[in-house]
Design a binder for these strands. Structure first.
Lengths: 242, 242
DNA sequence: TAGATTGTTAATCGATTAACAATC
DNA sequence: TAGATTGTTAATCGATTAACAATC
């Protein structure tokens, strides 16, 4: 392995920063679409929903792409961020599980516009085979291997029910996929060198519910602390929640 | 406002912990379904995909629900976490935007099983009105007010295209909704007392792409540093990325 | 009692923020 | 030059982790 030869100062970008770069990228695209050619860190930060100190700190990990006293060139910064994230190149993606969610994902324009190309739709249910979604045929799950090889797929999306997800992940890993976006509500077990990101709809709602409950209970107890009989403590647990 | 009278020691639970409680809850449900009645922090942590130190620290914010030398009673801990999150109560939810994603959300069983009840499906497109999804009629967006009042909706889900999302959010806020789950790829502007959580599919893929690119480039430069003519710097930017 | 495991402490690590010197 | 804004420093804050005393 040769030493890296990046031309900018970027070495290790903190995870929190990596997660915000796509937000900045989107804000820059919006600004460009509006005809804005230059923006300050303050303007870009507002568009991205963060404060300007954080924005400048984040951008400083990429290099020095602004001009003091002036701001940032929108197109230039946009390109630099896109390059760092890797969305200047083409990413072939496979989606497994073509239910409602799989359909939504296959049709999602935000993928294509950012270099993600859905090259295969796979489903274990043969009733779905032959259907075409967003111009791509739905094929048997067993075609995974071939699709990954033929198209050089590096990213897999799992949109199956929870019960099937681990199996799908195992097969993806066996095919050489090392980046997985998982929509199934289950913790996947994968080797260390495989990245899994999880999108969990019910967890997001539960986090909202927690905060909503706190808002609603400003004038009252945290929660009605009645332990229903069905969950009364087992032998090891202590006194009730009076 | 009366002082809070919670019976446990829980006061302010850190955000990072709040985000993990639903994961623990799911792991406990899975364990219970398998017939497990007691588990150690180590077992539960493994099931949840975290380390046991973090799990115990997280649980310590809720109170003291384990037994030293023994572990946790699965049903009892499950109830305590559900109560803290607020999913022992019923949360009426409205979904706006009944495209593929809206359909997927309306049909998602993970909502109902955690106390989230979809009471209204709204769409601005009148071609969708009258359709029934998961047993709920699709109605005009203008019914929002009435639905929120009639059902006591506290949580709104936005599954519209980006262009419509801010409008929808404004209307939701005007109706008194203070918790929003947003699937539209746009930064929403809302008052301070409104919680917005964002699920952004293309951002998740971009984060994966960033890491995938780093893996692939172990033996090479970080990125092919060629600046295409179309994005050559404007007047303010400095030298090329040679 | 001896063994096991929790709940908590304290150290470490990483992220955020404000402030300002550098500089266009 | 004077005004504006970046890039960076240093302080603060919050999250993670390891270790262990408390205790079942």
């Amino acid at each position: 392995m040769t030493t890296r030869t990046s031309t900018d100062g970027a070495r290790d970008i903190p995870e929190a920063t990596v997660a915000r770069l796509p937000v900045y990228l989107r804000a820059l695209v919006t600004l460009a679409d509006q005809g804005t050619t230059t923006c300050s860190s303050e303007e870009l930060a507002t568009a991205a929903g963060v404060n300007s100190a954080k924005l400048r700190k984040d951008l400083s990990y990429l290099g020095s792409y602004g001009t003091r006293g002036v701001g940032y060139d929108v197109e230039y910064l946009r390109y630099q961020i896109a390059r760092q994230i890797g969305v200047t190149q083409d990413w072939p993606v496979v989606i497994v599980g073509i239910g409602n969610l799989g359909h939504a994902l296959a049709n999602f324009s935000g993928f294509r516009s950012r270099g993600f190309r859905v090259v295969a739709l796979l489903d274990a249910d043969e009733h779905r085979h032959g259907e075409t979604v967003a111009g791509v045929d739905v094929r048997p799950f067993d075609d995974l291997d071939r699709m990954v090889r033929e198209h050089g797929v590096a990213i897999g999306v799992i949109a199956t029910p929870a019960a099937a997800a681990q199996d799908v992940a195992d097969r993806m890993v066996a095919c050489g996929i090392r980046s997985i976006l998982n929509f199934a509500p289950i913790v996947l077990a994968v080797p260390d060198d495989v990245d899994v990101r999880k999108v969990d709809l019910s967890i997001e709602l539960q986090i909202l519910a927690y905060h909503e409950q706190r808002k609603a209970n400003g004038a009252d107890a945290v929660v009605p602390s009645v332990v229903p009989e069905s969950v009364e403590q087992g032998s090891t647990a202590r006194g009730g929640a009076a």
